[in-house]
Simulated assay, not measured.
Amino acid sequence: MMDILMYLFETYIHSEVELQVDQDTLSDELVRAGFHQSDIHKALNWLEKLAALQETAEQQPMQSGALTSMRVYTQDEVLRLDTHCRGFLLFLEQIHVLNTETREMVIDRVMELETTEFFLDDLKWVILMVLFNVPGHESAYHQMEDLLYEAEEGLLH
Results as ranks from 00 to 15, higher is better:
Val106His: 01
Ile95Cys: 10
Gln143Val: 09
Ala52Phe: 04
Glu18Gly: 03
Asp108Thr: 11
Leu123Gly: 02
Leu148Pro: 00
Glu150Asp: 15
Arg86Ser: 04
Asp76Lys: 12
Glu101Leu: 14
Ile4His: 08
His96Pro: 03
Gln37Asn: 08
Asp24Phe: 13
Val17Lys: 13
Asn133Glu: 10
Leu50Asp: 00
Phe132Asn: 13
Glu145Tyr: 14
Asp108Met: 07
Glu145Ser: 14
Leu26Phe: 08
His41Val: 08
Thr11Ala: 06
Met62Gly: 06
Arg80Ile: 02
Thr83Asn: 06
Tyr141Thr: 07
Ala66Phe: 10
Phe118Trp: 02
Glu150Val: 08
Val31Phe: 12
Ile4Asn: 07
Glu101Ile: 05
Val31Trp: 12
Val134His: 01
Lys49Asn: 10
Lys49Thr: 06
Asp24Thr: 13
Arg103His: 06
Met105Leu: 10
Ala33Val: 06
Met129Gln: 15
Leu30Gly: 01
Met105Ala: 13
Arg80Pro: 00
Glu93Trp: 00
Ala57Pro: 00
Gln60Thr: 11
Ala151Gly: 14
Ala57Met: 15
Asn45Cys: 05
Glu152Ile: 11
Asp76Arg: 10
Gln37Glu: 12
Leu89His: 00
Leu156Cys: 14
Leu50Gly: 00
Thr102Ala: 07
His157Phe: 10
Arg86Phe: 03
His157Met: 05
Leu90Ser: 05
Leu30Ala: 04
Ile95Pro: 03
Glu153Gly: 15
Phe132Met: 10
Glu48Tyr: 10
Ser38Gly: 01
Leu123Ser: 04
Thr56Met: 09
Ala51Glu: 11
Tyr141Lys: 10
His36Tyr: 07
Ala51Trp: 07
Gln20Val: 06
His142Ala: 09
Glu55Trp: 04
Gln23Thr: 12
Leu131Tyr: 04
Asp82Lys: 00
Ile95Thr: 11
Phe119His: 15
Thr68Asp: 05
Val106Gln: 03
Ile107Asp: 03
Ala57Trp: 01
Gly87Ser: 01
Lys49Asp: 08
